[in-house]
Amino acid sequence: MNAADVALTVDGIPVTVAAGASILDAIAQAEIETPTLCFLQTLTPVNACRVCVVELEGARVLVPACARRAEAGMKIRTDSERVRHSRKMVLEFLASTVDISTAPAMQRYCAQYGAQPQRYGAESAKVAQPVKIDNALYVRDYAKCILCYKCVEACGTDAQNTFAIAVAGRGFDAHISTEYDVPLPDSACVYCGNCIGVCPTGALMFSSEYELRARNEWDEAEQSQTDTICSYCGVGCTLTLHVAENEIVKVTSPIENEVTSGHLCIKGRFGFSYVQNRPEEES
């Protein structure tokens, strides 16, 4: 243990983390799983979803594990009734508001916490709206958006510095938008697809995946994933090629990769078609 290390307890288990680590890190050290939605290790925590809240002894309200720094002597509870209740309610609130059909992690959490979104009634307000298809590369289905802010962060200072999208409006009407909701081709979007890479619910999706899903031909179990290096420039980004029936259907990058942190540019993310624009298939 370094002098700067921080000792605390999680559900009674003593853990030690480096100074500056979050409560989430400390909980992971205790090998306890914490649900997260708006958190990603490559992005600045916005602590907006509140699904990772935990009980901190002495604190009046629950604290977000992702954004709160671990401090020496903290006593954290991750399994109290208050914690379980808040998590369940957050999941219910989201699941009663958005379409979580392409969000497997959320579906798992909902089952785990016994969320019953239907109890708010069929008339409860939703964010349902038509899917936005305004370019050939990716679609935006904001009926699936839980407003985790990740895409805005990835488009902005945490990765791309393009600022094509922001959170607009307020309260329940808050939503992700370009300026004046202009279509992406009129916006600053550079189609790096880093927003797709961080989206936890499938609200942002490759057109290729969207089309395959629409045809009911999307089957992740049948896809292979191969890591290789992008063919375009000298940065050396690792690409994970998702391949089905000898076709690349999606490109991602490993989040822990030292070169990319999961982020790519338009060419790396979408510029693969040239290897499969095969003449015999076009005819």
């Binding site: 509140r50 409006g169 309260g171």
Partner: peptide, 9 residues
């Protein structure tokens, strides 16, 4: 403001 789920929803 719409930022956090407990309040927004």
């Amino acid at each position: 403001c719409g930022q956090c789920v407990p309040c927004r929803v």
